[in-house]
Design a binder for these strands. Structure first.
Lengths: 258, 258
DNA sequence: CGCATCGTTGACGAGTCTCAACTCCAGTGG
DNA sequence: CCACTGGAGTTGAGACTCGTCAACGATGCG
């Protein structure tokens, strides 16, 4: 069952003790960002909240009618699709505070599938209502544009981090991306769980799963990180960042990585 | 000189015989798409048009204040930036009818540079005015969302076409992407010019320029294409499409590539 | 407890990068 | 008109990274 159905369920069974946008600690990266209290009040009635879903359950599937933009409240979501030759392709992993579904506006149906990698919860924003509200609240419209712009930038970054980088650089970039994103939501930047499998990391980075495994082991030997199955501890973040650029540890970049 | 300055110039020197949106043959992929005649009339006064720029001239540069979204009227634009280690990274090539600048909304300044690869012309849409107009014209707001959504999808596609593909597949995907995009604007799908250098193709695809050259030569040997310097003729489009998927020529894909 | 899945590690080979030489072409100036 | 020059493109040879295949260990689930 995908969440579309769960959403229907929720309508009849009203949400119990689920935080409102106004008191949500993730509102700094989600739609309410930049809105004043008044405008958040207007946004509130749009939001659909419902029970968490478990690992393996889908938020939506390729071909489902596009209705909602989803904000991750907790957990991790893998967004993927199957290529023409039935290989899984991974578009991205979405962490708490991140928003998914923007890539399906044009088609009018979801162009990919979204599945929970662990128990996860969401807020759903019906897109047609969001569009209407955008016309009344300039700050909301701007925020939607900003979020979509951010998605383009992120996708561009990913694209470029696949170009001309070797396995070690790719894995370092991936770890630092996760670290930054967790930190941004108030989690630890140094210590987190890889909620996805080595295979999934490999697909995402364009590497064989064995290469991912080897690279992580190698980084551990070099005292950059400690890996134990799903858990990762970053010991030397600056060194890891230098790995990304391909610069030696003694070279100081003049242009900061943004 | 970047186009920002050219824009100022244009204000004093009014456009001569430059087509309006209502009569523009590219309006099917640009902002006017889906708007009725009335709404296009309202959009018209926003648009800034000016003289073509030459190869090597910039439309904007990294760090410039973000003001306009640009639509390519003719020519080719390379969008790029420098990485932390001063390597050129190419975000994309933009052809007539395509729209650039969406990735800079969030920062408020251009996060990349855009340079003409041949003599090229543009329409500029001041973004703040566009936002305002979006509140009055629902169809325009929806179109901006659609264009941005499309940009996300395209970037996702690029990302995935770098994953787990070998050089031959990457180059085939690149050629077919160009072919489709030219065809969509009424140009030939079979015959076109590669306005970018082998080096630039290589950077974009994450390959060495020698590999690009070798791959093109190899495709010519296989009678898939003819390459002569910048000119490309595609002889066997279906075969080229099969190269993309990695499927043999005798395997019929059940899911059409969209 | 058995089984399936996930992750690790090793050996080998294919594919691509690097380095280098060479050709071709456009533009420049004599 | 031609020689010169620099850039772009092609092609070859060797080195190296990474993918593939395989075996094995660890973990989690029924």
């Amino acid at each position: 069952m995908s969440i579309g159905c769960a959403l229907e369920l929720q309508k009849s069974a009203p949400a119990r003790d689920i935080a409102l946008c106004s008191s949500c600690r993730l509102s700094g990266t989600c739609f309410p960002q930049g809105l004043d209290t008044d405008d958040v009040q207007k946004l509130e009635p749009l939001v659909r909240r419902f029970r968490p879903i478990h690992r393996g359950e889908h938020v939506f599937r390729t071909g489902d009618k596009f209705q909602n933009i989803y904000a991750v409240r907790s957990g991790t979501v893998k967004v993927y699709r199957l290529s023409a030759d039935f290989e899984e392709q991974i578009i991205g992993f979405y962490l708490p505070g991140e928003v998914l579904g923007f890539n399906s506006i044009e088609q009018g149906e979801y162009v990919c599938s979204a599945v929970a990698l662990e128990t996860s919860s969401f807020c759903a924003f019906p897109f047609s209502l969001l569009e209407e509200l955008c016309r009344c609240i300039p700050a909301l419209q701007h925020q939607v544009f900003r979020l979509m712009s951010k998605e383009i930038v992120f996708s561009n970054e990913m694209m470029m981090s696949h170009c001309g980088k070797d396995a070690r650089q790719k894995v370092a970039i991936f770890l630092i991306s996760l670290s930054n994103r967790y930190q941004h939501q108030g989690y630890s930047a140094r210590e987190f769980r890889l909620t996805m499998s080595r295979r999934e990391v490999g697909i995402y980075l364009g590497l064989a799963l064995e290469t991912v495994s080897r690279t992580l082991s190698r980084m551990q030997e070099d005292n950059l990180i400690t890996v134990d199955r799903k858990s990762v501890i970053i010991h030397d973040l600056p060194a890891l960042q230098q790995v990304c650029t391909g610069l030696g540890p003694d070279v100081i970049p003049l242009i900061p990585v943004n």
